[in-house]
Design a protein around this nucleic acid. Structure first.
Length: 415
DNA sequence: CAGCAGGGGGCGT
DNA sequence: CGCCCCCTGCTGG
């Protein structure tokens, strides 16, 4: 009896890890099952290799291979029967499981996953899985503790824009705010930046403050109106920014964060982010009332495209690289990160930004820069991306300034 | 009521 | 096709 109890205790002890593992195995099995069905419908069974060939991106993100096969066996004609897909006469792809139709095949593939139960986008930290990548991103914020969306009518803040919209409707009886699109006048550059951030493992999240308020200004004014705003970027201002306890910071710098549980790491980092600067965490409200809260940003040496663009709220410049020794001089001592092998933690914390949301300040000591570079080198990280976020007169910055010294860096050619 | 997850639409490239 | 946004529904405090 006592032995039995002890054995149970041991089982319980390891349960969290085993549970996640088992759940992922379960999902894998489910995926394989769906694949099998899919393959039988297609008349061929896909191997793992062929899946990777179809969607190499999946390997990158550690996702399941797409099991929803989309193959036009017949090129012409409407109502082409595919694997779970039909094409309607108006060119839309129609779900064969329900009446849903969409002109975008990818959208339909996503939709069909609802029927197949496939959830290839898995959280690395918990059993959460979703058929939608965007949902995984929102889910990750629940781990990081990010609450980038703030209600401008009360102190409410949340991690999801939908929640904010929900809150505004329920609490303040307000209609949802339609957020205008990107303020970038140079959309090509925006697209390039998005691709670059994606290539860095930041998913589709963009490390740029796309303050919707900026949209209120005519595009042409973006280029002319920021000059008088640059004075906000006073280096003395962020000297006053709250800093992580120096001793603690030093310890972390020397030892790195040695969390056994990646979730702990994320949580701790999120906590540090929260301590950075109360104001700096104040997100950009998507509403026009918050124009006063615009947060200019600097992005140094953005890419090989020597871009210099200013806008109301966004400045991007292609400054010369700083020497590695001078790097720290321009860095806010806001936060030191230690990196194990959890790229997701980095992604989750660093990518605390998306359209209309600010990023936290991050400072990465040299040793850890090297660690990161070691980690990301094979992933083609171009470490000369420097992103500075300027918050309401209290600028913070994410620093870097040196290309991957291993020479493995450089972004894949976007072409 | 907030948090979270599921699902779909619009638009630019 | 990717990105961004929105709405809806469920759950727990």
């Amino acid at each position: 009896m006592a032995q039995h109890t002890r054995r149970n205790m041991e089982e319980i002890k390891t349960e969290p890890v085993d549970f996640v593992k088992e759940f992922q195995e379960y999902l894998t099995q489910q995926t394989q099952h769906v694949n099998m069905i899919s393959g039988s419908v297609c008349g061929e069974k896909e191997t793992a290799e062929s899946f990777q060939a179809v969607a190499p991106r999946c390997e990158q993100n550690g996702l399941d291979p797409p099991s929803v096969e989309v193959r036009l066996s017949v090129e012409d004609g409407s109502d082409v029967q595919m694997d779970g897909l039909e094409r309607t006469c108006d060119g839309k792809y129609k779900c064969s499981y329900c009446s849903y139709a969409n002109k975008g095949m990818a959208r339909l593939i996503e939709h069909i996953r609802i029927h197949t139960g496939e959830k290839p986008h898995r959280c690395q930290l918990c059993p959460f899985a979703s058929a939608y990548e965007r949902h995984l991103e929102a889910h990750m914020r629940s781990h990081t503790g990010e609450k980038p969306y703030k209600c401008d009518l009360c102190a409410f803040r949340c991690s999801d824009r939908s929640n904010l919209s929900h809150h505004r409707r329920r609490r303040h009886k307000l209609l949802p705010t339609r957020v205008a699109r990107s303020p970038f006048s140079n959309k090509r550059m925006l697209s390039a930046l998005q691709k670059r951030t994606a290539s860095l493992g930041f998913g589709r999240r963009l490390l740029i403050n796309l303050n919707p308020a900026s949209v209120m200004m005519p595009k042409s004014d973006f280029l002319t109106d920021l000059s008088h705003k640059i004075h906000h970027l006073n280096s003395s201002e962020y000297k006053n920014a709250p800093r992580v306890d120096e001793k603690e910071s030093r310890n972390r710098s020397a030892n790195g964060l040695t969390f056994k549980n990646p979730l702990d790491q994320v949580s701790t980092l999120a906590g540090q982010l929260a301590e950075l600067h109360p104001e700096s965490q104040t997100p950009v409200s998507p509403d026009r009332e918050s124009i006063k809260d615009e947060k200019p940003i600097l992005i140094h040496n953005v890419s090989s495209e020597q871009v210099a663009m200013c806008s109301n709220g966004v400045q991007i410049s292609s400054l010369k690289k700083e020497s590695p020794t001078s790097r720290h001089e321009n860095c806010s001592p806001a936060l030191s990160l230690g990196f194990e092998n959890n790229m997701n933690a980095l992604t989750a914390c660093v990518s605390n930004s998306q359209s209309g949301t600010p990023a936290p300040a991050l400072t990465i000591p040299d040793q850890q820069v090297n660690t990161i570079l070691d980690h990301f080198g094979s992933k083609s990280l171009l470490w000369d991306q420097v992103i500075v976020w300027h918050h309401s007169g209290s600028p913070s910055m994410l620093c870097g300034g040196t290309e991957n010294p291993a020479g493995q860096g450089g972004l894949p050619s976007s072409g």
